[in-house]
């Protein structure tokens, strides 16, 4: 695991982020139910090789892997059992975009 991605690490703990809403085909580790949802960075883990390339035997670039925390209410809206429960998932940097300050909670 290299450290280059860490140097360019744009997401500090607590940063408000959104998971990109794309729906590409193939082996993708960003779950569909979290795409387009907003959360906060819970921790930065380490750079890992991109499974979307590894799965097909392609040369894989390293991406920083984060744990992102979501409020159940932000993911399931009115269907949440308790809107303040939390869902946390590992998301690769290329799936994460920083929220504009104007949109951040």
């Amino acid at each position: 695991m290299g450290t280059q991605a860490l140097v360019n690490d744009p997401f500090a703990v607590g940063t408000s982020v959104r998971i990109r809403p794309f729906m590409p085909p193939g082996h993708v580790r960003a779950p569909v139910y979290l795409r387009g949802k907003t959360g906060t960075i819970e921790r930065a883990i380490a750079p890992f090789k991109n499974p979307e390339q590894l799965a097909y035997g392609l040369p894989a670039k390293e991406h920083m892997l984060y744990r992102v925390r979501f409020r159940a209410g932000d993911v399931w809206d009115k269907d949440a059992e308790n809107p303040d429960d939390m869902i946390e998932a590992e998301i690769y940097a290329h799936w994460i975009e920083k929220m504009d300050q104007s949109h951040a909670a």
Partner: peptide, 12 residues
């Protein structure tokens, strides 16, 4: 009592 659900989506 808040619940934290951990979705083991990648390498951890």
């Amino acid at each position: 009592m808040p619940i934290r659900v951990h979705d083991s989506t990648a390498d951890m």
